[in-house]
Design a protein around this nucleic acid. Sequence first.
RNA 1: GUGGUCGUAGCUCAAUUGGCUAGAGCAUCUGCUUGUGGAGCAGAAGGUUGCCGGAUCGUCCCCGGUCGACCACCCCA
Length: 423
Amino acid sequence: MSEPLSTDSYKGVRDFYPEDWARRLALFAQMRETLALWGYEEYNASPLERAEIYEAKTSEEIVRDQTYTFMDRGDRRVTLRPEMTPTLARMVAAKRRELTFPLRWFSIPNVFRYERPQKGRSREHYQLNVDLVGLPEGEADIEIVRLASEILKSFGAKGTDFVIRMSSRTLLNAACVAAGLTGERAKNYLHLLDRKAKMTSTAFAAAFVALGPKKDPLELIANASEDPRVALEKKKLLDCIESLKARDISNVVFDPSITRGFDYYTGIVFEVYDTNPTNPRSLFGGGRFDKLVALWGGDPIPAVGFGMGDITLADFIETHKLPLDTTSGKPQLYLGTPRASDIPAAQSFADTLRAQGCRVFVNLTDRALGDQIKDAVKRDIPFFIAYGADEIANNAVRMKILKTGEEAGLPVSEIPTRLRSGS
RNA sequence: GUGGUCGUAGCUCAAUUGGCUAGAGCAUCUGCUUGUGGAGCAGAAGGUUGCCGGAUCGUCCCCGGUCGACCACCCCA
């Protein structure tokens, strides 16, 4: 015999036991419900992607160090998707002639990053991706930001629980150009800006001066009248923010340090932060990527969207103690059998209930009835019916509510409604 | 990729300066009898102290390595 295998899961990934998976499903169900109300359709794709699609326009850091990339047996370079947006862009590009734009699409893919596991970060997580494809800046941006807010609110969050920080890549780019920063130096400036909050002001100033700018982009944005392009882009962004505020999104602010890590963003970028002082971190974000689809040829197709990870969302729900109903798939009724020989009849009785949508668990053991009740309690099944010779003979059952201990006879036809009402 | 903290039963934790057969609670299972409960009582099972090596008369305890978890960086979701 060889050594026993390890029961540990692979480093940095999670096993989802039924209880864990029920929580994920509850998250996903709430997302799907909200998105359906807004007319969004769900799509999906394989986690395996051609490696090349991450190399053109996404952050180099990710490709170099943070993806699972390998050669398959046919010498193709394969990557486990680190994010969904390039896949979305590829799928849209592939069928650009037959799709009906604008597209309102979402997906809840698992995505992979090879990096050191840490709080809120593992090597695989599920990430809701919501995208609105085929419309330029304006109402599309507003819908996406509102939807991001709406999804958090659908979990019971209040507007004071989070803040939406917005900026614009076009504004930042215009300010960089006006400040004499172009190409690599502009890109480096954005990365520096992204880190600003974590740096001391002197360290930031030193790194900034090292880039050799003629002016300070942030000052240009503050005094936008100095440059007409900056002024125009700033007005567009502020107008967008004002529109959101006018439509009940009061927790949105302009924050020029929001840049987002990916290079493919072209217009608005936003990031949603938890306002809880013990955990004031970024929850998720998104932005506009008008040139990504054109990487596969043809004219650009404008798009805007966001991605929301399941781990940070679950943490958010946990820290704010928001309720999450995880009972939707659980059995509602435990059918106990006084004798093991009653099992076939109990299954047959269960079938009539199942046909009416009742989730019924039938005992298959020869345990004593009292132990079966204990078993039902332990499994968190709310109702119990003993089904044996007496019930068959009298064609009548008594249903027990395990929480209260009450037990009463009732017509079989009433069982489905009682199970649904839960009492 | 860098640095720090930590690995003892399924879980939460004990174990005297390095010294008897590594303990407890919870959870699990079996009884307290065969048509109705979460309690109680009795009992059982559960461990190569993450793994490998070293130092020592002797190690859960010291040292090195390795794997893993957590935390802070880096970066990002």
